[in-house]
């Protein structure tokens, strides 16, 4: 299935900003995080799918947009 993966802040370095990627049906958000080795850069801060916060156990669906941010803040 097709999923759009969007990376932000430190996660972009040596990776990409946004890409359409192929995953097997039943793939979880955690698998995407693991495959991209994101947490070797910085712990996961925010995970959203289609603009909603979800848990890493979320099972991706065809056409989902997953957004991954390290721990960042401001104000």
């Amino acid at each position: 299935m097709h999923v759009i993966v969007k990376l932000f802040a430190q996660y972009r370095e040596s990776r990409f900003k946004a890409e359409q990627r192929e995953y097997d049906i039943g793939t979880t958000a955690q698998t995407v995080i693991d495959t991209l080795e994101l947490e070797s850069v910085s712990p996961l801060g925010v995970l959203m799918v289609n603009g909603r916060h979800v848990a890493p156990s979320y099972i991706l669906q065809e056409g989902d947009e997953i957004a991954l941010f390290p721990k960042v803040g401001g104000g």
């Binding site: 969007k6 932000f8 802040a9 430190q10 910085s42 712990p43 801060g45 925010v46 959203m48 603009g51 916060h53 957004a67 941010f69 390290p70 721990k71 960042v72 803040g73 401001g74 104000g75």
Partner: peptide, 24 residues
């Protein structure tokens, strides 16, 4: 702390544009 120790120094508070944009 990953926010005060890494995130804020690297991107400043403006890192929030993309997060708020994603969150609607």
């Amino acid at each position: 702390n990953p926010i005060s120790g890494q995130g804020l120094p690297a991107f400043g508070t403006n890192v929030l544009v993309n997060i708020l944009n994603e969150a609607g």
